[in-house]
């Protein structure tokens, strides 16, 4: 089976500093993978390079059989990749609903606004308030929700649980489980592997701009030593 998203020997630079040193990964249709690693190891950079936000990069990225390296940034989303940044990127000058409706539809099969409001009732209640008046958890919900509307086939999700209360983390976990049930493909970046273990099918471990290990969720218990060493938890 050929992968939906495959990345080969991806290198990336911030200005003069070389950040990614040959990242290889693949994600199959409907699979949820999780990239683990300490801060500064290149997890976010990997997502930004795949998305094409970081342009100083080399290697091979293909998505649904299409070469992504040559596409300008705005065509990456059109190809079916959805990006949810770590800082969430909620717009202050837009209302909650405007934020939700902002990303253009890229394909059929996205959630309808009603479905989204059923999934995130808080957003419906506050749909007319400015985007940044939401709590951190609500902003994360909004950041997720607006990509679900677009019909993207694969989500690049950067640390969705960072800085959130356990009850919110639980709710986000539930949403991810539902998405998986709908067949959504997800690349999740997390430091919280206990959270990731509940949703991810497979793990990559990242260290100094490279993938140093790859294993399915079932092997997680056997890899705890490695994880403790690498993540320092």
């Amino acid at each position: 089976m050929s992968a939906l998203l495959s990345v080969e020997n991806l290198q990336a630079w911030y200005g003069e500093s070389h950040v990614l040193h040959g990242v290889n990964l693949h994600v199959n249709q409907g699979e949820m993978i999780c990239i683990l690693g300490r801060n500064g190891m290149g997890k976010t950079t990997t997502l930004r390079s795949i998305m094409g936000i970081l342009r100083k990069r080399s290697g091979k990225i293909s998505f649904a059989g299409q070469d992504m390296m040559a596409l300008p940034l705005h065509k990456t989303a059109r190809a079916g990749l959805g990006f949810i940044p770590e800082e969430r990127g909620i717009f202050a000058s837009l209302s909650v609903e405007e934020n939700l409706m902002l990303p253009p539809k890229v394909a059929e099969g996205g959630m309808s606004v009603e479905e989204i409001y059923t999934l995130f009732p808080n957003l419906k209640e506050r749909r007319n308030s400015p985007g940044t008046k939401l709590s951190g958890g609500e902003q994360q919900m909004l950041a997720l929700a607006r990509i679900l509307r677009t019909g993207a086939r694969c989500l690049l999700l950067d640390e969705p649980t960072e800085g959130l209360a356990p009850v919110i983390i639980q709710a986000i976990g539930d949403v991810l489980v539902q998405l998986k049930a709908r067949g959504m493909t997800v690349v999740l970046v997390e430091q919280n592997f206990r959270f990731a273990a509940k949703v991810a099918d497979r793990f990559y471990l990242m260290d100094h701009g490279k993938m140093v290990a790859e294993f399915p969720v079932a092997e997680l218990p056997n890899r705890m030593d490695l994880l403790h060493r690498e993540l320092g938890v």
């Binding site: 998305m51 094409g52 940034l73 705005h74 065509k75 989303a77 990127g89 000058s93 253009p104 677009t150």
Partner: peptide, 15 residues
């Protein structure tokens, strides 16, 4: 308005 705040993210959304 959104692009005034964060043009890169708006472009990453496909605009």
């Amino acid at each position: 308005r959104a692009a005034t705040e964060n043009p890169v993210l708006v472009q990453a959304f496909g605009v």
